[in-house]
Design a protein around this nucleic acid. Structure first.
Length: 310
DNA sequence: AAGACGAAAGTGGTTGA
DNA sequence: TCAACAACTTTCGTCTT
Protein backbone atom coordinates (compact mmCIF):
# COMPACT_ATOMS: atom_id res chain seq x y z
CA UNK A 1 0.00 0.00 0.00
CA UNK A 2 1.47 3.25 -1.02
CA UNK A 3 1.28 6.35 1.08
CA UNK A 4 -0.72 7.96 -1.67
CA UNK A 5 -3.63 5.83 -0.57
CA UNK A 6 -4.16 8.13 2.36
CA UNK A 7 -4.76 11.22 0.36
CA UNK A 8 -8.49 11.69 0.11
CA UNK A 9 -9.22 15.19 -1.02
CA UNK A 10 -7.79 17.71 -3.35
CA UNK A 11 -6.44 20.61 -1.26
CA UNK A 12 -7.25 22.96 -4.09
CA UNK A 13 -10.93 22.33 -4.71
CA UNK A 14 -11.88 19.60 -2.24
CA UNK A 15 -12.62 17.18 -5.08
CA UNK A 16 -12.43 13.48 -4.43
CA UNK A 17 -11.47 12.28 -7.84
CA UNK A 18 -7.79 11.81 -7.50
CA UNK A 19 -6.03 9.90 -10.18
CA UNK A 20 -2.60 8.42 -9.89
CA UNK A 21 -0.81 8.70 -13.16
CA UNK A 22 1.53 5.77 -13.41
CA UNK A 23 3.82 7.08 -16.10
CA UNK A 24 4.79 10.23 -14.36
CA UNK A 25 4.04 9.56 -10.72
CA UNK A 26 1.76 12.54 -10.60
CA UNK A 27 -1.42 12.55 -8.62
CA UNK A 28 -3.96 14.64 -10.39
CA UNK A 29 -7.29 16.00 -9.31
CA UNK A 30 -9.68 15.26 -12.11
CA UNK A 31 -11.94 18.09 -11.09
CA UNK A 32 -9.59 21.01 -11.27
CA UNK A 33 -6.41 19.52 -12.66
CA UNK A 34 -4.40 20.34 -9.57
CA UNK A 35 -1.24 18.31 -9.26
CA UNK A 36 -0.81 17.00 -5.74
CA UNK A 37 2.47 15.28 -6.16
CA UNK A 38 5.00 14.87 -8.88
CA UNK A 39 8.07 13.93 -6.95
CA UNK A 40 8.63 10.53 -8.43
CA UNK A 41 12.19 9.98 -9.48
CA UNK A 42 12.68 9.54 -13.17
CA UNK A 43 13.99 5.99 -13.32
CA UNK A 44 14.40 5.92 -17.03
CA UNK A 45 17.95 6.74 -17.91
CA UNK A 46 19.08 8.59 -20.90
CA UNK A 47 21.85 6.45 -22.30
CA UNK A 48 23.88 8.28 -24.77
CA UNK A 49 26.99 7.74 -26.83
CA UNK A 50 29.40 10.38 -27.87
CA UNK A 51 31.15 8.24 -30.38
CA UNK A 52 33.51 10.83 -31.72
CA UNK A 53 35.26 11.58 -28.51
CA UNK A 54 36.89 8.69 -26.66
CA UNK A 55 37.61 10.69 -23.54
CA UNK A 56 33.90 11.27 -23.12
CA UNK A 57 32.91 7.66 -23.53
CA UNK A 58 32.24 7.09 -19.90
CA UNK A 59 29.62 9.79 -19.83
CA UNK A 60 26.25 8.21 -19.29
CA UNK A 61 23.54 10.67 -18.64
CA UNK A 62 22.86 14.32 -19.02
CA UNK A 63 20.03 16.46 -17.82
CA UNK A 64 16.61 14.92 -18.42
CA UNK A 65 15.22 15.95 -21.75
CA UNK A 66 12.06 17.92 -21.82
CA UNK A 67 9.83 19.08 -24.61
CA UNK A 68 8.63 22.15 -22.83
CA UNK A 69 11.85 23.90 -23.65
CA UNK A 70 12.30 24.82 -27.22
CA UNK A 71 15.48 22.83 -27.78
CA UNK A 72 14.52 20.03 -25.40
CA UNK A 73 17.11 21.28 -22.97
CA UNK A 74 19.92 20.45 -25.30
CA UNK A 75 21.83 22.70 -27.60
CA UNK A 76 24.09 21.99 -30.49
CA UNK A 77 26.07 24.45 -32.47
CA UNK A 78 28.25 23.89 -35.44
CA UNK A 79 31.80 24.96 -34.97
CA UNK A 80 32.99 26.34 -31.71
CA UNK A 81 35.57 29.02 -32.31
CA UNK A 82 38.51 27.04 -31.02
CA UNK A 83 37.99 24.27 -33.55
CA UNK A 84 38.15 26.61 -36.47
CA UNK A 85 41.82 27.35 -36.08
CA UNK A 86 42.63 23.73 -36.73
CA UNK A 87 41.20 23.93 -40.21
CA UNK A 88 42.73 25.03 -43.46
CA UNK A 89 41.10 27.68 -45.63
CA UNK A 90 38.92 25.41 -47.73
CA UNK A 91 37.46 23.52 -44.84
CA UNK A 92 37.07 26.68 -42.93
CA UNK A 93 34.82 28.11 -45.59
CA UNK A 94 32.79 24.97 -45.55
CA UNK A 95 32.34 25.36 -41.85
CA UNK A 96 31.20 28.91 -42.14
CA UNK A 97 28.64 27.89 -44.71
CA UNK A 98 27.38 25.03 -42.59
CA UNK A 99 27.16 27.24 -39.60
CA UNK A 100 25.18 29.79 -41.50
CA UNK A 101 22.74 27.16 -42.72
CA UNK A 102 22.31 25.62 -39.36
CA UNK A 103 21.73 29.02 -37.94
CA UNK A 104 19.02 29.80 -40.46
CA UNK A 105 17.17 26.54 -40.11
CA UNK A 106 17.36 26.33 -36.39
CA UNK A 107 16.41 29.92 -35.78
CA UNK A 108 13.32 29.57 -37.94
CA UNK A 109 12.11 26.49 -36.13
CA UNK A 110 13.35 27.43 -32.72
CA UNK A 111 11.96 30.90 -32.78
CA UNK A 112 8.61 29.42 -33.63
CA UNK A 113 8.91 26.81 -30.90
CA UNK A 114 9.93 29.35 -28.34
CA UNK A 115 6.85 31.44 -29.00
CA UNK A 116 4.58 28.44 -29.28
CA UNK A 117 5.71 26.86 -26.06
CA UNK A 118 5.19 30.10 -24.22
CA UNK A 119 1.65 30.19 -25.54
CA UNK A 120 1.19 26.54 -24.66
CA UNK A 121 2.28 27.19 -21.10
CA UNK A 122 -0.09 30.09 -20.81
CA UNK A 123 -3.11 28.14 -22.03
CA UNK A 124 -2.34 25.04 -20.02
CA UNK A 125 -1.90 26.94 -16.81
CA UNK A 126 -5.14 28.76 -17.48
CA UNK A 127 -6.84 25.38 -17.70
CA UNK A 128 -4.82 24.07 -14.76
CA UNK A 129 -3.61 21.10 -16.69
CA UNK A 130 -1.10 18.72 -15.13
CA UNK A 131 2.51 18.75 -16.23
CA UNK A 132 2.29 15.42 -17.96
CA UNK A 133 -0.33 16.78 -20.31
CA UNK A 134 1.66 19.89 -21.00
CA UNK A 135 4.68 17.78 -21.85
CA UNK A 136 2.64 15.61 -24.16
CA UNK A 137 1.20 18.62 -25.90
CA UNK A 138 4.65 20.10 -26.33
CA UNK A 139 5.84 16.83 -27.83
CA UNK A 140 2.96 16.78 -30.26
CA UNK A 141 3.53 20.37 -31.22
CA UNK A 142 7.22 19.81 -31.77
CA UNK A 143 6.48 16.91 -34.08
CA UNK A 144 3.95 19.00 -35.92
CA UNK A 145 6.46 21.76 -36.51
CA UNK A 146 9.08 19.34 -37.71
CA UNK A 147 6.65 17.92 -40.23
CA UNK A 148 5.73 21.36 -41.43
CA UNK A 149 2.12 20.98 -40.37
CA UNK A 150 1.91 24.48 -39.03
CA UNK A 151 2.21 25.98 -42.47
CA UNK A 152 -1.01 27.68 -43.43
CA UNK A 153 -2.35 27.52 -39.91
CA UNK A 154 -1.89 29.87 -37.05
CA UNK A 155 0.58 28.83 -34.44
CA UNK A 156 -2.00 29.35 -31.71
CA UNK A 157 -4.50 27.01 -33.26
CA UNK A 158 -1.95 24.24 -33.56
CA UNK A 159 -0.99 24.77 -29.94
CA UNK A 160 -4.63 24.49 -28.94
CA UNK A 161 -5.09 21.40 -31.07
CA UNK A 162 -2.03 19.75 -29.53
CA UNK A 163 -3.29 20.47 -26.05
CA UNK A 164 -6.70 19.10 -26.88
CA UNK A 165 -5.12 15.91 -28.18
CA UNK A 166 -2.85 15.61 -25.15
CA UNK A 167 -5.78 16.00 -22.78
CA UNK A 168 -7.64 13.20 -24.42
CA UNK A 169 -4.70 10.86 -24.42
CA UNK A 170 -4.29 11.41 -20.72
CA UNK A 171 -7.97 10.90 -20.05
CA UNK A 172 -8.50 14.32 -18.58
CA UNK A 173 -10.53 15.65 -21.48
CA UNK A 174 -11.48 19.27 -21.76
CA UNK A 175 -14.23 20.32 -24.09
CA UNK A 176 -13.52 22.24 -27.24
CA UNK A 177 -15.36 25.14 -25.66
CA UNK A 178 -12.95 25.25 -22.75
CA UNK A 179 -9.93 25.14 -25.02
CA UNK A 180 -11.53 27.80 -27.11
CA UNK A 181 -12.08 30.07 -24.15
CA UNK A 182 -8.54 29.58 -22.90
CA UNK A 183 -6.80 30.07 -26.20
CA UNK A 184 -9.04 32.55 -27.93
CA UNK A 185 -9.25 30.35 -31.00
CA UNK A 186 -12.55 29.38 -32.52
CA UNK A 187 -13.95 25.99 -31.71
CA UNK A 188 -14.16 24.88 -35.30
CA UNK A 189 -10.60 25.84 -35.94
CA UNK A 190 -9.30 23.89 -32.96
CA UNK A 191 -11.29 20.86 -34.01
CA UNK A 192 -9.97 21.14 -37.52
CA UNK A 193 -6.32 21.38 -36.58
CA UNK A 194 -6.77 18.71 -33.93
CA UNK A 195 -8.08 16.30 -36.52
CA UNK A 196 -5.48 17.27 -39.05
CA UNK A 197 -2.52 17.01 -36.71
CA UNK A 198 -3.56 13.71 -35.15
CA UNK A 199 -4.23 12.21 -38.55
CA UNK A 200 -0.93 13.37 -39.99
CA UNK A 201 1.04 12.19 -37.00
CA UNK A 202 -0.94 8.98 -36.70
CA UNK A 203 -1.78 9.32 -33.04
CA UNK A 204 -4.71 8.93 -30.71
CA UNK A 205 -8.03 8.20 -32.43
CA UNK A 206 -9.65 6.82 -29.28
CA UNK A 207 -13.07 8.35 -28.74
CA UNK A 208 -13.20 9.93 -25.34
CA UNK A 209 -15.10 8.24 -22.59
CA UNK A 210 -18.13 10.13 -21.23
CA UNK A 211 -17.25 8.99 -17.73
CA UNK A 212 -14.12 11.10 -17.85
CA UNK A 213 -16.27 14.20 -17.93
CA UNK A 214 -18.58 13.27 -15.08
CA UNK A 215 -16.26 14.18 -12.24
CA UNK A 216 -15.56 17.65 -13.48
CA UNK A 217 -19.13 18.46 -14.42
CA UNK A 218 -20.41 17.14 -11.11
CA UNK A 219 -18.04 19.23 -9.10
CA UNK A 220 -18.84 22.43 -10.91
CA UNK A 221 -22.52 21.71 -10.32
CA UNK A 222 -21.74 20.97 -6.67
CA UNK A 223 -23.37 17.58 -6.74
CA UNK A 224 -22.80 14.96 -4.07
CA UNK A 225 -20.48 12.01 -4.47
CA UNK A 226 -23.52 9.75 -4.37
CA UNK A 227 -25.05 11.41 -7.36
CA UNK A 228 -21.80 11.30 -9.15
CA UNK A 229 -21.29 7.59 -8.77
CA UNK A 230 -24.91 7.04 -9.73
CA UNK A 231 -24.26 8.94 -12.92
CA UNK A 232 -21.30 6.74 -13.71
CA UNK A 233 -23.45 3.71 -13.02
CA UNK A 234 -26.11 4.95 -15.40
CA UNK A 235 -23.45 5.60 -17.95
CA UNK A 236 -22.12 2.07 -17.77
CA UNK A 237 -25.60 0.73 -18.09
CA UNK A 238 -26.22 2.92 -21.09
CA UNK A 239 -23.06 1.74 -22.74
CA UNK A 240 -24.16 -1.85 -22.34
CA UNK A 241 -27.37 -1.20 -24.27
CA UNK A 242 -25.49 0.70 -26.94
CA UNK A 243 -27.01 4.07 -26.27
CA UNK A 244 -23.69 5.80 -26.38
CA UNK A 245 -22.09 5.01 -29.70
CA UNK A 246 -22.12 7.78 -32.21
CA UNK A 247 -23.35 10.33 -29.69
CA UNK A 248 -21.34 13.17 -28.37
CA UNK A 249 -19.75 12.10 -25.09
CA UNK A 250 -20.45 15.38 -23.35
CA UNK A 251 -24.16 15.17 -24.11
CA UNK A 252 -24.39 11.69 -22.67
CA UNK A 253 -22.40 12.61 -19.61
CA UNK A 254 -24.63 15.62 -19.05
CA UNK A 255 -27.83 13.61 -19.36
CA UNK A 256 -26.60 10.89 -17.01
CA UNK A 257 -25.70 13.53 -14.49
CA UNK A 258 -29.06 15.22 -14.88
CA UNK A 259 -30.94 11.98 -14.23
CA UNK A 260 -28.74 11.04 -11.32
CA UNK A 261 -29.31 14.43 -9.71
CA UNK A 262 -33.03 13.97 -10.18
CA UNK A 263 -32.99 10.58 -8.49
CA UNK A 264 -31.11 11.83 -5.47
CA UNK A 265 -33.27 14.90 -5.12
CA UNK A 266 -30.50 17.30 -6.02
CA UNK A 267 -32.28 18.64 -8.99
CA UNK A 268 -30.48 20.98 -11.34
CA UNK A 269 -32.21 22.61 -14.25
CA UNK A 270 -31.46 21.38 -17.73
CA UNK A 271 -30.06 24.80 -18.42
CA UNK A 272 -27.50 24.57 -15.61
CA UNK A 273 -26.32 21.14 -16.62
CA UNK A 274 -26.23 22.12 -20.25
CA UNK A 275 -24.05 25.11 -19.51
CA UNK A 276 -21.30 23.29 -17.69
CA UNK A 277 -21.29 20.48 -20.22
CA UNK A 278 -21.20 22.84 -23.15
CA UNK A 279 -24.26 21.40 -24.88
CA UNK A 280 -27.80 22.64 -25.28
CA UNK A 281 -30.87 21.71 -23.29
CA UNK A 282 -32.31 20.03 -26.33
CA UNK A 283 -29.48 17.55 -26.50
CA UNK A 284 -29.84 16.76 -22.84
CA UNK A 285 -33.56 16.23 -23.35
CA UNK A 286 -32.97 13.84 -26.20
CA UNK A 287 -30.40 11.81 -24.32
CA UNK A 288 -32.52 11.94 -21.19
CA UNK A 289 -35.54 10.64 -23.08
CA UNK A 290 -33.52 7.77 -24.50
CA UNK A 291 -32.17 6.92 -21.08
CA UNK A 292 -35.68 6.72 -19.62
CA UNK A 293 -36.94 4.62 -22.49
CA UNK A 294 -34.20 2.08 -22.61
CA UNK A 295 -33.17 1.88 -18.99
CA UNK A 296 -35.81 1.28 -16.40
CA UNK A 297 -35.23 4.46 -14.52
CA UNK A 298 -38.86 5.53 -14.37
CA UNK A 299 -39.47 3.70 -11.14
CA UNK A 300 -36.60 5.48 -9.46
CA UNK A 301 -37.95 8.82 -10.45
CA UNK A 302 -41.50 7.94 -9.44
CA UNK A 303 -40.23 6.94 -6.05
CA UNK A 304 -38.77 10.35 -5.59
CA UNK A 305 -41.95 12.04 -6.61
CA UNK A 306 -43.96 10.00 -4.14
CA UNK A 307 -41.52 10.81 -1.40
CA UNK A 308 -41.97 14.47 -2.02
CA UNK A 309 -45.73 14.24 -1.70
CA UNK A 310 -45.58 12.47 1.61
C1' DA B 1 -42.79 33.36 -14.21
C1' DA B 2 -39.56 29.83 -14.87
C1' DG B 3 -38.64 25.45 -16.39
C1' DA B 4 -39.61 21.48 -19.33
C1' DC B 5 -40.97 19.77 -23.72
C1' DG B 6 -41.07 19.16 -28.74
C1' DA B 7 -41.19 20.63 -33.68
C1' DA B 8 -38.81 22.72 -37.45
C1' DA B 9 -35.10 24.61 -39.79
C1' DG B 10 -30.07 25.36 -39.95
C1' DT B 11 -24.90 24.06 -39.32
C1' DG B 12 -20.61 21.50 -39.88
C1' DG B 13 -18.65 17.07 -40.52
C1' DT B 14 -18.58 12.22 -42.27
C1' DT B 15 -19.39 8.80 -45.77
C1' DG B 16 -19.99 6.54 -49.97
C1' DA B 17 -20.75 6.80 -54.94
C1' DT C 1 -16.23 16.14 -55.80
C1' DC C 2 -20.92 16.01 -54.55
C1' DA C 3 -25.08 14.55 -52.26
C1' DA C 4 -27.18 12.04 -48.54
C1' DC C 5 -27.01 11.59 -43.73
C1' DA C 6 -26.62 11.74 -38.56
C1' DA C 7 -25.73 14.47 -34.57
C1' DC C 8 -26.23 18.73 -32.57
C1' DT C 9 -27.81 23.64 -32.34
C1' DT C 10 -30.98 27.56 -32.57
C1' DT C 11 -35.32 29.29 -32.28
C1' DC C 12 -39.85 29.42 -30.98
C1' DG C 13 -44.47 28.08 -29.39
C1' DT C 14 -46.91 25.34 -25.86
C1' DC C 15 -47.58 22.93 -21.65
C1' DT C 16 -46.50 22.18 -16.57
C1' DT C 17 -45.18 23.40 -11.97
Amino acid sequence: MSRTGFIKKCPECGGINLVHHKDTGEIICKDCGFVLEDKMVDFSQEWREFDSDSSEKRRRTGAPTTYTQYDQGLGTEVGQKADLYKLSGKDRNKFFRLRKWQYRISTAIERNLKLALAELKRVSSYLKLPNSVEEEAARIYTLAVQRGLVRGRSMESVVAGSLYAACRRHEVPRTLDELSEASGIEKKEIGRTYRFVTRELGINILPSNPADYIARFASSLKLSAETQSKAVEILEHAQRVELTSGRGPTGIAAAALYVAALIFGEKRTQREVADVAGVTEVTIRNRYKELLERLDLEKDIKKIKKKKKL
